[in-house]
C-alpha cells in the first residue's frame, strides 16, 4: 500500500530524514517511535505534502502511484490522512460545513453525487455517536477554542468520515489525560480494519498499549535504527532511547 524507499528530506538547509525505508501493507498498524526532534513529524508532513519540507532523495509510492508527485489535496483524495499533532484552528468556518465539504470532495473524487446537508447531518451524527462525541462540536468553528482532547477527537472524527487508506496519527496521545487517551484510542481501533493501515507516531509507548501495532520502528537522527514487534515498544518503556542516542 505505502512504500517508502530511502527517503531523504529536509527543512530549509537542514536534512532531517536521512534515508528512511518502510513498507506498510493493508491492515497493518505501525508504531513509529523516537525522541522529539528526530524526524517523526517531518516524515508525516512529507507524506501529506507540506510545502515547507523538501524531498532531497528517495521515493514514496502509494498504491503503485508516485505519492511525491501528487499535490496535498490529491494525496488526501487518494486516501492519505494525517491526524495532526497540533490541529489548526479555523475561526469562522463551521465544523459541520467543513466536514461536509471535505466529505463531498472525496465523493466527487470517487465519482459519486454529493450528499445534501440533511443526509450528511445524519451520517455525521452517527459517526459522532460512534466516537462518543458531543453534537455541539458540529456547530462550533473548526477546532476554535477546543481543548487538546477535543481537537484530537475532531481529527479522529475526520478520519472516521473520510475513511483513509493510510492514516498517520502524529502524537495523537500528546496533551491527553488517561481517560481521553482511552476514548481516542478506542475510536481509532474501531476504525482500523483489513483494508486500511495506521501509522502511530509517538515518543511515548503508552498509546501502543491501547492501539496494538504489528510493527514498531525506532526513528533516531532521521533513520530507522531498529524495527520489531510489540516487544520492542515494551522494551523502550523500560530502557528509553538513551542507548540509541549514545550510538554514533
Amino acid at each position: 500500500m505505502l512504500e517508502i524507499n530511502r527517503l531523504r528530506a529536509g527543512y530549509g538547509e537542514a536534512e532531517i530524514l536521512k534515508g528512511i525505508s518502510l513498507t506498510v501493507k493493508p491492515g497493518e498498524i505501525h508504531g513509529i517511535m523516537g525522541p522529539n526532534g528526530h524526524g517523526k513529524s517531518t516524515m508525516s508532513k512529507i507524506l501529506i505534502g507540506h510545502p515547507a519540507y523538501a524531498v532531497t532523495g528517495g521515493g514514496v509510492t502509494f498504491n503503485g502511484k508516485n505519492l511525491l508527485e501528487m499535490p496535498p489535496e490529491k494525496r488526501a483524495l487518494e486516501g492519505m490522512f494525517l491526524a495532526y499533532q497540533y490541529p489548526v484552528e479555523i475561526p469562522g468556518v463551521n465544523n459541520a460545513e467543513f466536514l461536509r465539504m471535505a466529505y463531498n470532495e472525496k465523493r466527487k473524487h470517487e465519482k459519486l453525487e454529493p450528499v445534501d446537508p440533511l443526509d450528511f447531518d445524519e451520517l455525521l451524527n452517527a459517526k459522532m455517536k460512534f466516537l462518543g462525541m458531543d453534537s455541539r462540536f458540529k456547530e462550533r468553528a473548526v477546532n476554535e477554542g477546543f481543548s487538546g482532547g477535543e481537537k484530537k477527537k475532531n481529527e479522529i472524527l475526520q478520519m472516521a468520515l473520510l475513511e483513509p487508506k493510510v492514516a498517520i496519527l502524529d502524537e495523537i496521545d500528546s496533551g491527553l489525560d488517561i481517560d481521553a487517551l482511552k476514548v481516542v484510542a478506542e475510536g481509532v481501533n474501531k476504525l482500523a480494519g483489513p483494508g486500511n493501515s495506521l501509522m502511530i507516531i509517538t515518543h511515548y509507548p503508552r498509546i501502543l498499549q491501547y492501539i496494538k501495532p504489528h510493527h514498531v520502528h525506532v526513528l533516531i537522527r532521521g533513520k530507522i535504527v531498529r524495527s520489531g514487534g510489540m516487544d520492542l515498544a515494551e522494551e523502550l518503556e523500560t530502557t528509553g532511547y538513551d542507548s540509541y542516542l549514545k550510538e554514533k
Partner: peptide, 18 residues
C-alpha cells in the same frame, strides 16, 4: 489553507472558504 488541502479540499475552494 494547508489544513483544508490535506483534507482533500482544492486550494481555490479552501481560499474561498477562509
Amino acid at each position: 489553507i494547508f489544513y483544508l488541502k490535506s483534507r482533500g479540499i482544492p486550494e481555490e475552494r479552501a481560499r474561498a472558504l477562509l
